[in-house]
């Protein structure tokens, strides 16, 4: 019973390793390049399986590269960081009270007032 679960966890770890390799360079990589970058005696077929799974998840995209098929991460490390930041902010419903935020949500009336302030010299 234990074996499949173990395998799945290992697959998840491999997926993030492959993603990390793809994000560490600023050009697409061929499966064979990924294979050697990850190391660990990974079979070419395994790399291919992982890439297919990542592609289905929308994490990587197949792109033409040097006359062959290469793989590139759909999200960059910067985008991942931005997502993590958003999650961090949403983790606390009080973040507006904690952080020194430049602006916060507006009601429709407030939007109108601000637009008027920007448009003309009308006093608020």
């Amino acid at each position: 019973m234990d074996a499949p679960r173990h395998e799945r966890r290992a697959a998840g770890a491999l997926e993030s390793e492959v993603l990390a390799v793809l994000r560490s360079v600023d050009h697409p990589l061929k499966p064979s390049e990924i294979q050697s970058a990850v190391g660990r005696d990974l079979a070419y077929n395994t790399v291919h399986t992982i890439l297919t799974r990542l592609q289905q998840k929308g994490d990587v995209a197949r792109v033409p590269y040097g006359g062959r098929i290469g793989y590139a991460p759909v999200k960059s490390a910067a985008q991942v960081a931005a997502e993590r930041m958003r999650e961090a902010l949403q983790s606390s419903d009080k973040h507006d009270e904690i952080l020194q935020r430049f602006i916060t949500a507006l009601s429709p009336d407030e939007e109108d007032a601000l637009r008027a302030a920007l448009d003309g010299d009308r006093r608020l």
Partner: peptide, 30 residues
């Protein structure tokens, strides 16, 4: 004002088609 309006426009685009309650608070941009 520009930053607040840009954020509001973005929030509206993100909420398009969905009923999203936007939180207003007391930091009084206006």
């Amino acid at each position: 004002a520009t930053a607040a309006l840009a954020q509001a426009a973005d929030a509206r685009a993100a909420a398009a088609g969905r009923q999203v309650a936007l939180g207003f608070n007391h930091l009084g941009t206006v």
